[in-house]
Nucleic acid binder design. Structure first.
Length: 285
DNA sequence: GTCCAGGGTCAAG
DNA sequence: CTTGACCATGGA
């Protein structure tokens, strides 16, 4: 990856297997929006704007090279060799070969673990556009204001001080009590997310599931999208459908140590295509 | 009106 | 261990 200063920001080049659309619209994150030809998103206490230029280059708004390499390359998982993983996937299964080809620009984001925990609690039995709206209201109500119409994700302490009643404006329904339990456990130190991130997968999973409202699927999402654990494998209704129709009898182990990335390729693919029960697949135009 | 959504909990079989 | 009601909300 090359980085040059330009136009009050940085221009990244020589990056393969990375597209803003695939990475930011594949359902792993909820705080990014398409905005004048690029994307605007909030991570930590930073408002990031990115835009794809010609020749595979990407422009990022004002920061120094050190900050990008030190923080955001990790956030976007740009130092991992996705080419090697994609080649393995291609040889593994025809549908996965097709899926990784079509969504080849996906990078698994390393989002903040606390934000990921709350986000995927909210995701339970919910639609992606509505998840985004609920999170937007949550940040607007309880998060620190960063710029006009841009708010940081609220801290565990602030959320722990809320009640089901004060969370009502968020309109997250039955999930409010889940958020409160997560906030209380994290704010009190009873659940240390940094420690959990380093635990062996079964133990990490179990620790996350100690939160009321966190089951297997949400735990896997937090591990994959908020803790950089690429072996985690979330099974939502879409993935269950793919596994039933095309990977009968197989589980996460079939995909190896980067199963979570295979999961994401297949999840994104399945939402954009009609999958048939006979194991075939056709483009949805 | 009915069905569905990046589900989880709880009680009952 | 599996099944089903129930949970809030809003779009299709």
């Amino acid at each position: 990856m090359r980085i040059e200063r330009e136009n009050g920001g940085l221009v990244l080049s020589e990056i393969e297997h990375f597209s803003l659309y695939d990475t930011l619209e594949c359902g792993q994150c909820f705080r990014w929006e398409a905005q004048d030809g690029g994307y605007c998103g909030i991570a930590g206490r930073r408002v990031l704007r990115l835009k794809e230029l010609s020749g595979g280059k990407i422009w990022v708004n004002g920061m120094e090279e050190e900050e990008f390499r030190g923080i955001w390359a990790r956030y976007f998982d740009l130092d991992r060799d996705y080419g090697a993983i994609r080649r393995e996937f291609s040889a593994l299964h025809p549908l996965l070969a097709e899926a990784q080809e079509e969504a080849g620009g996906i990078r698994i984001l390393r989002q903040d673990s606390w934000e990921a925990l709350c986000s995927f609690i909210i995701s339970a039995n919910n639609h992606i556009p509505r998840i985004k709206e609920i999170i937007r209201r949550l940040c607007r109500e309880f998060g620190e204001k960063l710029e006009a119409d841009a708010y940081a994700f609220p801290s565990p302490a602030v959320l722990a001080g809320q009640t089901v009643e004060t969370l009502a404006p968020i309109r997250c329904g039955f999930r409010a009590k889940y958020l409160l339990d997560a906030a209380q456990k994290v704010a009190s130190g009873q659940l240390n997310l940094e420690e959990v991130a380093a635990l062996p997968l079964p133990e990490a999973r179990a620790r996350l599931m100690s939160v009321y409202g966190v089951g297997e699927k949400v735990a896997e999402c937090v591990l994959l999208f908020g803790m950089g654990r690429l072996e985690a494998f979330p099974m939502d209704v879409w993935m269950k459908r793919v596994m039933r129709t095309h990977f009968s009898g197989k589980g996460a182990e079939f995909f190896g140590e980067h199963a979570g990335l295979a999961n994401q390729y297949l999840f994104f693919y399945s939402r954009n295509h009609q999958l048939k029960d006979d194991g075939t697949f056709t483009r949805k135009v």
